[in-house]
């Protein structure tokens, strides 16, 4: 990696964070009134919206209905102006399709789908501004939206990315760190049980280092959980005040 020093000798990253530090996370539940559940999250400069519709009857072909559980339908799209270079289409390209499948896999592991047989749950995520860690931001936003919709889940799903630079694992990569091309790991964790809902790694990484990177991502994901839990509690509190309980 010529030119850019991702981790200084003093242990600081390009944006001034420590190796295991997350970017600032701000979130809000119940952004839209018409959807069953919605949430918005900002992780540093990455901004994502998630909307949940359902559980409702299967839309379109009935043949897709599953007799024993609900169908989780995910669509990932990223606004044409979200990236540095303008994108031509918001969804339907290969990366968006892959992201949609990953989200589906993540939430099939977390949502108690067997409670709603022959029905469908739609999870739509929209990235408004992309600055690294879009998968993680989408999962975190979608978790809040699913909770807002009141759909039973095993646990929160908290996601975080991690990378590996100069023998150190970095948590929550920004766009600059992702673009540098080192190994990258995306992890979705069910924090209370410690189960992994999705794990994906690209680029080459020595087996001996994997545990360290995985631990960094899992630790960060647990931190995310603390924050999301706080957001949910605050939202419920506000809602109950409005109801006058």
């Amino acid at each position: 990696m010529a030119g850019l020093e991702l981790l200084s000798d003093q242990g600081y990253r390009v944006d001034g964070r420590r190796a295991g530090e997350l970017r600032k996370i701000q979130a809000r539940m119940g952004v839209f009134a018409q959807a069953d559940g919605s949430a918005y999250i900002e992780q540093g400069n990455t901004k994502a919206l998630a909307v949940v519709y359902g559980p409702h009857e299967i839309r379109g072909s009935r043949a897709r209905a599953l007799p024993d559980r609900a169908l989780v339908n995910c669509q990932y799209s990223s606004a044409t102006f979200s990236t540095g270079e303008r994108k031509r289409r918001p969804h339907g390209d290969r990366k968006s399709c892959e992201m949609g499948l990953q989200l589906r896999q993540t939430f099939e592991a977390a949502v108690l789908t067997q409670l709603h047989p022959r029905s469908q749950i739609d999870i739509y995520v929209q990235v408004l501004q992309a600055d690294g860690g879009t998968y993680a931001a989408c999962v975190n936003a979608a978790t809040l939206a699913v909770l807002d919709a009141g759909i039973p889940m095993r646990d929160f799903v908290c996601a975080c990315s991690a990378g590996f630079v100069d023998g150190t694992a970095l948590a929550d990569l920004s766009h600059v760190e992702e673009a540098a091309g080192g190994p990258q790991l995306a992890l979705a964790l069910l924090p209370s049980s410690g189960q992994i809902a999705l794990l994906e790694m690209d680029a080459r990484l020595h087996e001996d280092h994997l545990e360290q990177v995985l631990e960094a991502a899992a630790h960060a994901a647990r931190d995310v959980h603390t924050l999301l839990d706080r957001v949910v509690r605050q939202h419920v509190q506000e809602a109950s005040i409005l109801l006058g309980d």
Binding site: V51, Q75, S77, T80, G92, D122, Y124, Q126
Partner: peptide, 16 residues
Amino acid sequence: FFVDCSANAAPEFEGR
């Protein structure tokens, strides 16, 4: 000009 009717607005807008 480009207008994206995202699925966020209504489930009918999913896909194309």
